[in-house]
């Protein structure tokens, strides 16, 4: 039997909104560690890794490891039926091919349950080694989303370049070119407004903006985003999930031939 209960159900709604456009079907892995997912987009260019640790839930029971294959669009449809203040419980019994989502209003006067069919999904689980990154940028997530959105009206790709001057986001297209430079700014009133750049080596990498824009769907989850880059490695764009885990997006760079 598997059961988890999350009082702040809106977190789960936001998590689904953050991954459903990138991935159609995915296996959720349930273990004593927590509720996790690793899935690639259909073109194998981007990967999303989600971890919600068991300690982060008000109740978490996982008698044995379980993989639940779900269609994310359908799961998002069901979670949309939960109110933002609702408590969400996810339940699956051993040997059944369904999962139940239960939503309780804060005052307990409305309780709904939605049952969804599970799927068998053949998924390739990639081994992602721990890496030391040459440059790590921490910045306000809304600022990063704004930059990706603005640059996608200029071009299809973004060049991200980290030097000791700061981080430069550049795009070029038929109508012209754009450069946005963010400098380190640690002297802000609120830590969530800070931009911190840790650089061992200067790095310049090029990425498809379509994917970056899709990653920024996670912006409502966290005030800050962390972008980790090394030459010729996929970038990691990470959003923390309220002290209980993270969503990490990996994106392969474009290489000039």
């Amino acid at each position: 039997m598997f059961e988890l209960r999350l009082v702040q159900g809106s977190l789960l709604k936001k998590v689904l909104e953050s991954i459903k456009d990138l991935v159609n079907d995915a296996n959720f892995d349930c273990s004593s560690t927590g509720f996790s997912l690793q899935a690639m987009d259909s073109s194998h260019v981007a990967l999303v890794a989600l971890l919600l640790r068991s300690e982060g839930f008000e109740h978490y029971r996982c008698d044995r490891n379980l993989t639940m294959g779900m269609n994310l669009a359908n799961m998002a449809k069901m979670l949309k039926c939960a109110g933002n203040d609702d408590i969400i419980t996810i339940k699956a019994d051993d040997g059944t091919d369904t999962v139940t989502f239960m939503f309780e209003s804060p005052s307990q006067d409305k309780i709904s349950d939605f049952e969804m069919k599970l799927m068998d999904i053949d998924s390739e689980h990639l081994g992602i080694p721990e890496a030391e990154y040459e440059a790590i940028i921490r910045m306000p997530s809304a600022e990063f989303a704004r930059i990706c959105r603005d640059l996608s009206s200029i071009g299809d790709t973004v060049v991200i370049s980290v030097t000791k001057e700061g981080v430069r986001f550049s795009a070029r297209g038929d109508i012209g070119a754009a450069n946005i430079v963010c400098r380190q700014n640690a002297t802000v009133d609120k830590p969530e407004d800070a931009t911190i750049i840790e650089m061992q080596e200067p790095v310049t990498l090029t990425f498809a903006l379509r994917y970056m824009n899709s990653f920024t769907k996670a912006t409502p989850l966290a005030e800050q985003v962390t972008i980790s880059m090394s030459s010729d490695l996929p970038v990691v764009v990470e959003y923390k999930v309220a002290g209980m885990g993270y969503i990490r997006y990996y994106l392969a760079p474009k290489i000039e031939e």
Binding site: L233, A252, E257
Partner: peptide, 14 residues
């Protein structure tokens, strides 16, 4: 010409 690489060039399949 820009070539879009895929993730399996960087990460291993089990």
């Amino acid at each position: 010409l820009w070539l879009q690489r895929i993730l399996v060039l960087y990460f291993s399949l089990p």
